[in-house]
Design a protein around this nucleic acid. Structure first.
Length: 561
RNA sequence: GUCCCCGUAGCUCAGAUGGAUAGAGCGACUGCCUCCUAAGCAGUAGGCCCCAGGUUCGAGUCCUGGCGGGGACGCCA
């Protein structure tokens, strides 16, 4: 498109000036008097060429003649080059967007390579909470952004179905089981106290009766474990489905053991000579790879720490062909990053493997007060409760609209608000409004199909309110590219809100009440087609943006009340 | 004590490899529906970008040192 043509011309011009290739920006200035596009390239080159920026800008301008679609170039401020585009050039992007349709915004940066995104990875010890929700939304959106950037994405969910936490769960279930059968037993202090544990016990009684009443041994406990894990897994599955998140693969920790990957990892680490025995435990010299201290792999009681299966697990990712792996985790797992990477480096994997996106925690506020409204989980708010309360789209969007590394305050009042104060509805409503234009055109018997729009004379889009929208739409592909590279879905939220705002503004200024001459559904077929083309292009961008984030793009909005 | 993240409008937060006059939403105030959905739009008010140095043509952005908040520092996960 036009931006690429100007970029290319700028590169050629800098080479011609003897400056070689330079890094510079070419973007849309805030102030429209600074043109449609502006570049800082002259200032960026000033140091290297040892000449004043405005002088360099003058030389560049002299070489930048005859770029198709550029009306004129001005030198401004300390040495900016401001490009003013012809009306037809701006309109041309409308056709480009309409032509690409559902593919508008996609790029091939990934070249079809495989990448794994591991996220949620909740242990089956309870219902999913809000932290998992943020992670589900984040992981899925990052995965989606990578798909839009040409990667082949694998979504994976890892879970510990063995080990200390699961044992505590099993013991807790047994305690509730016995309580329900009339025994005076307490749930251990380090056990799971939530009501859902009693629900599991009750379900188990319904299924197997009093079978485990007199068995305080491992057989009963193993039955409890299997039953509880299966039940909680399927419950998590149901909650994720309600949240519109799906995975390609679920990887249980027990598989690492049953396939011998943990023991083979121990052998391989021993072969490196980086292990040693101390205090009866087996240690790995992770400090040799930047970890703050060495770590225990096998405890003095002979059982492995979590660290070891974690290394084994990441080796399987590599061996399954995933050399690009992104782990989305809560920042409370921060301390494991260096240690796992160190373990993998000991086995000759690259130092940055895997990549981590760590996110901060979530709190919910209602009426300015922090709330916890879980009835079942006891100590935290569940994802299922939140989704039932505000809907999947709103929940997803709110989880995504802040940078991962920033703490997230979930404003329940705003989430429940169905007006445009709620950013989700603002974006969805802007989309619905554009769809409505087409429906009305249809009702009036006006043809507004793809060919009509593609053949419209978009140079008729001369009003500033129209041109501003088009320029905003033109930035969508670069925005997606930046969001994917930065693993930053919140940039898409920002962009969509801004775009929706501009669409609404355009829609209002061109409202028949206010400016009949700017109205979209005018009698003049040429003008109408051009404006519907703009509406169609904007609709595509909002639709594609919402789709990337995993949200619906409704054609109609229906209010609850 | 060490490491990581955060500090921007009254509140919640954006600010791409350093660029022109620092933005949005909420809240406050003022206007705008005979007409394509007002679930909207236009406008006003609101800022020592935590502090102090440094780097340079230029710093909210980069560096150093403080201050404040959160998290992590286990033979827990």
């Amino acid at each position: 498109m036009l931006t690429e043509r100007i970029s290319e011309a700028l590169r050629e011009a800098t080479v011609a000036l003897g400056a070689g290739s330079a890094r510079f920006r070419l973007d849309r200035p805030r102030d429209t008097s600074h043109g449609d596009l502006a570049t800082n390239v002259a200032m960026a080159l000033a140091g290297r060429l040892g000449r004043p920026p405005r002088e360099i800008a003058g030389d560049l301008k002299a070489r930048l003649t005859g770029i198709e679609g550029v009306e004129r170039i001005e030198i401004a401020g300390p040495g900016f080059l401001n490009f003013f585009l012809e009306a037809g050039a701006v309109g041309g992007t409308v056709q480009a967007i309409l032509g690409r349709g559902v593919r508008y915004g996609r790029n091939e940066d990934g070249g079809g390579q495989r990448v794994m995104v591991e996220f949620v990875s909740a242990n089956p010890t309870g219902p999913l909470h809000l932290g998992h929700g943020r992670q589900a939304a984040l992981g899925d959106a990052i995965a989606s952004l990578l798909e839009w950037s040409g990667w082949t994405v694998h979504r994976e969910f890892y879970f510990n179905d063995a080990g200390g936490q699961i044992r505590r769960l099993s013991v807790s279930v047994r305690a509730r089981y016995l309580q329900l059968l009339g025994h005076d037993v307490a749930v251990p202090e380090d056990g799971y106290q939530g009501e859902y544990v009693s629900e599991i016990a009750a379900a188990l009684i319904e299924k197997d009766g009093r079978r485990y009443e007199d068995d305080d041994g491992d057989i009963a406990l193993e039955a409890m474990r299997r039953y509880a894990v299966a039940l909680l897994r399927s419950e998590q599955e149901r909650d994720l489905a309600a949240f519109n998140v799906r995975f390609d693969e679920y990887y249980p920790e027990t598989r690492l053991y049953s396939e011998g990957l943990v023991s083979s990892t121990i052998s391989k680490l021993r072969e490196t000579g980086l292990t040693y025995r101390e205090d009866g435990a087996l240690w790995l010299r992770t400090s040799a790879f930047g970890d703050q201290k060495d770590r225990v792999m096998v405890k003095s009681d002979g059982s492995p720490t979590y660290f070891l299966p974690d290394v084994a697990y990441h080796m399987t990712k590599w061996e399954r062909g995933f050399h690009d792996v992104i782990n989305v985790q809560g920042s409370d797992h921060h301390s494991t990053v260096d240690r796992v990477r160190a373990g993998l480096q000991a086995l000759d994997r690259p130092s940055g493997y895997p990549e981590y996106v760590l996110h901060q925690m979530v709190t919910v506020e209602h009426g300015g007060e922090e709330v916890r409204f879980s009835k079942r989980a006891g100590s935290y708010t569940t994802l299922a409760d939140l989704v039932a309360e505000v809907g999947a789209d709103v929940a997803r969007y709110f989880f995504l609209m802040r940078r991962p590394e920033a703490h997230l305050t979930f404003d329940l009042d705003l989430a429940l608000d169905q007006s445009d104060r709620n950013p989700v509805y603002k974006v969805q409503y802007a989309h619905a409004r554009l769809c409505r234009l087409f429906k009305l055109a249809d009702e009036r018997g006006w043809v507004a199909d793809h060919d009509t729009l593609m053949n419209a004379d978009t140079s008729l889009l001369t009003d500033p309110s129209e041109r501003e929208v088009v320029k905003q739409l033109a930035e969508f592909p670069a925005l997606l590219r930046r969001a994917a590279a930065g693993r930053a879905p919140h940039l898409v939220c920002d962009y969509l809100e801004k775009t929706a705002g501009m669409v609404n503004s355009w829609y209002q200024t061109s409202h028949p009440t206010r400016n009949p001459e700017l109205s979209t559904l005018v009698e003049d077929p040429g003008l109408r087609a051009a404006r519907l083309g703009l509406a169609g292009a904007a609709r595509i961008v909002l639709d594609n943006g919402l789709t990337v984030l995993g949200l619906a793009a409704p054609e109609r909005m229906v209010r609850d009340d």
